[in-house]
């Protein structure tokens, strides 16, 4: 028997599972769903996992200013981080700057933030973008804010672990420089994923459904986690279940 849940709740539960075993997860600005997921996994780990939420006062114990996140990443003290992108391509390159020619850009987004650094250094970077369309998932990004893979010899302990969208979860194979479709969210099909994805990806013959959140996980999300994330994202917390 399953309890009805929202897409947000599904994504929170999926990300929390991906964070299992991490010692310290940092969540960047404007990332309410990853923030809630990190707090959920922290709760499930009995508090063993540390969480830093940039933009939060309560879940941010940094005392050395904005640079501390990046210094921690360089020291290997952050196991997982989240990045998005206005465009993401099949080699894991991300574009947070804009479309068309640079710097005039047809569509200009805010900018690269810390991506041109943390993507290289944090071992488990989860690419997260709810919109799953050919507009976002393109054959080749127009501007590389940060590359998915680096040439041999370039210091690169970190990189993409996978890509989570509103429709599916893909893992990333660093050797093959390719995404692989792992699960499709309930209510969606492989066919739909193919239609909406602008790059080639590996696809096994049978693609399982993304597991629905268990009742006790949903209860946790709707209870403690919702209250905790409200400190940083009050408007998000009020629309959780929609």
């Amino acid at each position: 028997m399953s309890i009805p849940y929202s897409r947000t709740e599904l994504l929170v539960a999926v990300i929390a599972r991906l964070l299992e075993g991490c010692r310290h997860v940092t969540v960047g600005a404007s990332s309410p769903i990853p923030g809630a997921a990190a707090l959920l996994q922290k709760d499930l780990s009995g508090g063993a996992m540390r969480v830093t939420i940039l933009g939060s006062n309560r879940y941010n114990a940094y005392t050395n200013g904005g640079v501390e996140t990046f210094d921690m990443a360089a020291q290997g003290r952050i196991d997982a981080f989240f990045l998005g992108g206005g465009q993401i391509d099949g080699q894991g390159n991300i574009n947070l700057v804009g479309t068309g020619s640079y710097p005039e850009s047809e569509v200009r987004w805010p900018g690269s933030f810390g991506s041109a650094y943390v993507y290289y250094l944090v071992p488990k970077v989860i690419l997260f973008r709810e919109e799953h369309t050919r507009r976002v998932l393109v054959p080749k990004v127009d501007f590389i804010s940060s590359p998915g893979v680096s040439a041999p010899g370039v210091y690169r302990p970190g990189g993409p672990y996978g890509l989570l969208t509103g429709l599916a979860w893909f893992s990333f194979d660093k050797q093959k420089r390719h995404f692989r479709l792992e699960t499709v969210h309930p209510g969606h099909t492989v066919e739909e994923i193919r239609d909406q994805t602008g790059f080639e990806f590996d696809c096994p013959a049978q693609v399982p459904l993304t597991p629905a959140p268990e009742p006790e996980i949903l209860a946790l999300i709707r209870g403690r986690i919702r209250k905790q994330i409200a400190e940083t994202y009050p408007r998000f917390a009020s629309t959780f279940a929609n």
Binding site: G65, G66, V67, F70, A74, S112, F113, G114, S115, A116, Y117, V118, Y119, Y120, L121, I144, S145, S146, P147, S150, A151, V154, Y155
Partner: peptide, 27 residues
């Protein structure tokens, strides 16, 4: 990129002409 601004200011505070930074290559 955020750490580049921080690092370049840190070079500035130390009176150094430049500072190295990880990442960036290939972007």
């Amino acid at each position: 990129t955020c750490p580049a601004v921080h690092a370049a200011l840190q070079a500035g505070q130390k009176g150094l002409p430049f500072i190295p930074l990880r990442g960036l290559i290939g972007s």
